[in-house]
């Protein structure tokens, strides 16, 4: 069996403080992602999941600083890499999509050239060779009329189409890892279903691994093989998806699942009050500090 694609060890992110210990946003985060795997990171706002993803991409801005840790990718530590080599890797071997595609797309450039740019920058193609490849990439993400859409500007597309364009940009160079940070949170449910299916099918075909970040337990359950639950900057539980949802161990995970109005639960449980994480869970209790991190493959 080959080793992990990305091995994150003890990632700690924080804000340095001249007069004392740094304020830690993410503490001692360790997990790995296997080639082709869809790994989910779930947590609420402020849990540190996005800061962790941005650290991997070398995109955190001051004062947020990576204080400790390694992220090994093909023998190299992403966190210790020069900006220059990181820029080469980013978009080529590791790429990222965000919640709001409109903020990631250039409003003044046509869709086609924003995709073609990837081939020019990372593959050294000429613009005239890159353009037909951009149309192919649009076709691969099932955008109807790819040739016409390549000439369109971002504002002329719907939210779902824009996210498909972002996926086309991210997948253009067939990366090893796609980091998807809340990719469908802004979309309608039926569009969300289509975009999720597209990500899964495309990554399966290209052998791309996915780090899927979401606050939506449903999305995570549907997409991921393994799931990490983050809260307060720490990884509390890391399990096979099925084990996590059938038999959550950490009180926070249990609370999170009980706070979710699940479709189909009312017929069984009635119109009950939902669990209140703030009152049901004492984040300072000793039990909260415990973690449930199961190695891959081990039965739950």
């Amino acid at each position: 069996m080959s080793g992990p694609l990305l091995d994150i060890r003890g990632l700690t992110i924080g804000i340095p403080n001249r007069n004392g210990p740094p304020l830690q946003i993410v503490r001692d985060l360790s997990f790995d992602i296997m080639p082709g795997e869809i790994f989910g990171l779930v947590g609420e706002s402020g849990s540190g999941k996005s800061a962790s993803a941005l650290a991997l991409m070398g995109l955190n801005r001051r004062p947020l600083t990576t204080l400790k840790g390694q992220a090994l990718y093909g023998g190299q530590d992403l966190l210790a890499m020069s900006r220059r080599s990181m820029r080469k890797l980013r978009g080529d071997r590791i790429s990222m999509i965000f919640q709001e595609p409109m903020t990631a797309l250039n409003p003044l450039a046509r869709i086609g050239s924003q995709i073609a740019e990837m081939f020019v920058l990372h593959r050294g193609l000429s613009w005239s060779d890159a353009r037909p490849k951009a149309v192919e990439a649009l076709a691969a993400v099932q955008v109807p009329d790819p040739e016409g859409r390549a000439r369109a500007y971002p504002h002329q597309l719907s939210g779902g189409l824009r996210q498909r364009v972002m996926i086309a940009v991210a997948m253009a160079c067939r990366p090893d890892l796609l980091i998807a940070d809340e990719p469908t949170t802004a979309l309608d449910v039926t569009v969300q279903a289509e975009v999720l299916r597209l990500i899964r099918e495309l990554c399966e075909r290209e052998g791309t691994a996915v780090l899927l970040i979401s606050h939506d337990l449903g999305v995570i359950a549907q997409m991921c093989q393994r799931v990490g639950v983050m809260a307060n900057g720490r990884l509390l539980e890391l399990r096979d998806a099925k084990a996590l949802f059938t038999d959550p161990r950490h009180p926070y995970t249990q609370g999170l699942l009980a706070a979710l109005p699940r479709l189909g639960s009312r017929a069984v449980e009635g119109r009950h009050r939902l669990a209140d994480l703030d009152t049901a869970i004492d984040r300072n209790a000793p039990g909260f500090a415990e973690t449930y991190l199961r190695p891959r493959g081990e039965a739950a």
């Binding site: 449910v189 449903g218 359950a221 059938t246 699942l257 479709l263």
Partner: peptide, 19 residues
């Protein structure tokens, strides 16, 4: 039916009959 089907639902994973 399409709306209900397309909702990502953890119950689907755990094989809840109600799903």
């Amino acid at each position: 039916r399409r709306l209900i089907e397309t909702i990502p639902n953890p119950a689907r994973l755990t094989g809840g009959a109600q799903d």
